[in-house]
Structures are given as C-alpha cells and as structure tokens.
C-alpha cells in the first residue's frame, strides 16, 4: 500500500502528516534527554521555579495559539454536508458480513461521487483506496442509518474498498473493487 509517491493520484497527505509527527516526536525525545541531563545538576529550586513560572504563560499562549489555529483551520475541511446537488454520480453502498454491494460499480474519471453508505447487519467501515493504494477517505456503514460520503475520483483505475470497522470473523476479507473508467 502506498509505495507510489510519484504517481499523480498519490497526494502525499499521510506521509506529510507522519513526517510532521516524527519531527515533533524526535524534538520531544531530544528535549526529554536534555532535561534528564539537567536533572543531575544542582540548582536552587527558587531559581528553577522562577524561570519556569515566568515561561509558563508564554508556553500556554504558544500552544493555545498553535492548537487553536490548527483546530479552526481543520474545521473548514470536514467531510460532512456533501454537496449532493453538484454531484455527478451517486453510488448506493451496502456493507454486510462480509461483502460490499455498490450500485453502480463504476463511474467515469473526474466524477464528483456521492456514496450513500449503509449496512445490512452490523457496523462496517467504508474505506476507499485509490489505484496506488492510498486511503483517500472513509465513512462508517451503520445499520439503520445512511452516511453520505463525497469523493472526487479523478484518476482512472481500480479502487479498493476495504472494511475499516471490525465486523467479525472475516473482517479482513471484506473487500471489493470499484472502477473509475477513462472519461
């Protein structure tokens, strides 16, 4: 899965997230290693406390601004409320133990597709992988409910649908293919 970084249908989103996380994690590890070295030294508690308490509001403000900004920005990019009127195709999806039915089973490339996803029995997860194996989105398939998932399918090829919610004995085998044909 996902070894085709140069393929145009692989947008590198997950890799970028993982790299950012790795940089933060390594920075934190280095900080804790540095602080551990400082732990062996002897300094007056008053001096340490004064410096730490002076820095704390700045640290709080920094974190609050960074996290607040990220949260606010991401809330503009949620997959909720798809524009069903603008969709060029609608695919009805039913997940069951341990199969997917999709109607229709293919759409032309460049389609803005609404997947109307529900479940026949238990909860399933409708995870869509593009032809290079990148997970491009997912939604839960729930008994009694229909979730509308909007995806822009620009690259022609065979897309893989895998179950992303544990659904029982053959959960790992619950997969199907979906075709995006040349325009």
């Amino acid at each position: 899965m996902g070894d085709a970084l140069l393929d145009p249908s692989y947008d590198g989103f997950q890799i970028a997230v993982a790299v950012v996380f790795a940089l933060i994690a390594v920075s934190l590890a280095l900080f804790f290693a540095f602080a551990a070295r400082q732990a062996g030294r002897e300094m007056s508690l008053e001096a340490v406390t004064e410096a730490a308490y002076r820095a704390r509001p700045l640290w709080l403000a920094f974190l609050a601004i960074v996290l607040g900004t990220i949260v606010c920005v991401t809330l503009f990019f949620t997959p909720y409320r798809p524009d069903t009127a603008a969709a060029s195709a609608t695919v009805k999806v039913v997940g069951g133990q341990f199969y997917w039915t999709m109607d229709p089973k293919s759409v032309p490339a460049g389609s803005d597709v609404i997947f109307e996803v529900t479940a026949a029995d238990v909860n399933h997860g409708f995870g869509v992988y593009n032809p290079t194996g990148q997970l491009i989105g997912n939604v839960q398939a729930m008994p009694g409910y229909t979730n509308d998932l909007e995806l822009s399918l620009d690259e022609p090829g065979t897309y893989l649908v895998s179950c992303l919610e544990f659904c029982g004995l053959k959960h790992h085998d619950m997969a199907a293919e979906f075709e995006v044909t040349e325009e």
Partner: peptide
C-alpha cells in the same frame, strides 16, 4: 520536568 530540573534527581 521543572521539579526534576537541577534537582540532583
């Protein structure tokens, strides 16, 4: 970390 820092932990 503050309590550990410079404490001869």
């Amino acid at each position: 970390v503050m309590l550990v820092w410079g404490s001869r932990y």
